[in-house]
Write a protein that binds this DNA or RNA. Structure first.
Lengths: 191, 191
DNA sequence: CGAAAATTTGACATGACTCAACTGGAGTGG
DNA sequence: CCACTCCAGTTGAGTCATGTCAAATTTTCG
């Protein structure tokens, strides 16, 4: 478990053993059941979570009750609602577990402590957000310029691991399609 | 000019006068003509830019030659291609000036120097990216769930200043619409 | 003024949505 | 272990938003 976190952090910054131990002391481990909420709309997000095991989704429920999936998470990904935890305002998102999950949490307060003790961790989180931001920009461009079929093909090429673990109607939601449309796309696809 | 930058930085972190002076010494001022490129596809982005005056766009040209606008920039916004400058790989974007611009640049190297001398600036740039990321997530959700008409109304409500300065076909591109469709939407709109 | 660019308008095509019905598998309880 | 329900996935028919192609009109700017 800690190895996963160390490897993930070590990918972007180099820390001493002491630094790692400081970091580890500030995280807490938590298990979730399938379908359990990590964050519910209206709650203020209090931590960032690192997925040790399992699979999550983060989504918004719109005025018409439709769910729109913002992103999925699997092992070694980070989940959180930056907007809510930074602004301390209620989140507009839900996050829940598609599979049973094991996570490491760090609260905002402990993150500040961590930055003070291990300044490189501020850099680490900056890099995480940068990467998330870059990915998010790419997704915007894909949504602007590609058809449903192209977006689906891109998705399965990019996230083959996710595609196998997640029901199609949720992939449809992520891609901005109805389940019916995705089903038809998948139908043609096998030509 | 420096006041604008100071105010922008001061919005997120508090610096001493010395810190500001250190920061200022690492930026360089540059003027651009209308239509001039700030960054061209294929070039490696070498700096982040702060807009003192003017208006920019950042866009991708797809396989079919179509342009898709990722974002606009006006006074007191930051422009750059994080992916390219961090990875040192050629950018896939173009950035150019819709109006004549005045900018303050900071190169990646000087940014590192700045972080070392004024650690709060690392925090400042992290916050900038966080905010950009949050905005980008919201845009994804809008693109997933809203019609062209709704996206347009949201755009003019959110960026009234931009809407007046930018040709409609570029707004269409930003919204993921053809200029024709946007024109029709605007037609109905005046009911 | 004149050329180029931007915007609008019309006719038509199409991708994706909606509503609805049907299939098949997973889980549940008697 | 079967009957029942629930949910995901598929399929069909009709509709609508938006795209495409083409042309006319207006605006911008050298």
């Amino acid at each position: 478990m800690w190895e996963l976190l160390r490897r993930n952090i070590g990918r972007h910054v180099s820390l001493t053993n002491d630094d790692f131990e400081t970091a580890e002391s500030l995280f807490t481990f938590k298990k979730y059941r399938k379908k359990q909420f990590i964050l519910q709309e209206g709650d203020v997000s209090r931590y960032e979570s690192f997925i040790i095991k399992g699979c999550t989704r983060t989504y918004e429920t719109d005025a018409g009750g439709q769910e729109h999936i913002l992103h999925f998470g699997i092992e070694e990904w980070w989940v959180g609602d930056l907007y809510s935890s930074l602004s301390e305002k209620p989140s507009v998102y839900h996050s829940d577990c598609i599979e049973a999950c094991e996570m490491l949490h760090i609260t905002k307060e402990k993150q500040e402590i961590l930055y003070a003790k291990v300044p490189a961790m501020e850099r680490f989180f900056r890099i995480l957000i940068q990467n998330a931001f870059i990915a998010s920009q790419n997704r915007i461009l894909t949504n602007l310029s590609k058809s449903g079929k192209e977006r689906y093909n891109e998705f399965i090429a990019k996230y083959p691991l996710i595609e196998q673990r997640i029901p199609n109607h949720q992939i449809a939601s992520y891609l901005g399609l109805t389940p019916q449309s995705l089903s038809r796309i998948r139908g043609q696809h096998s030509k």
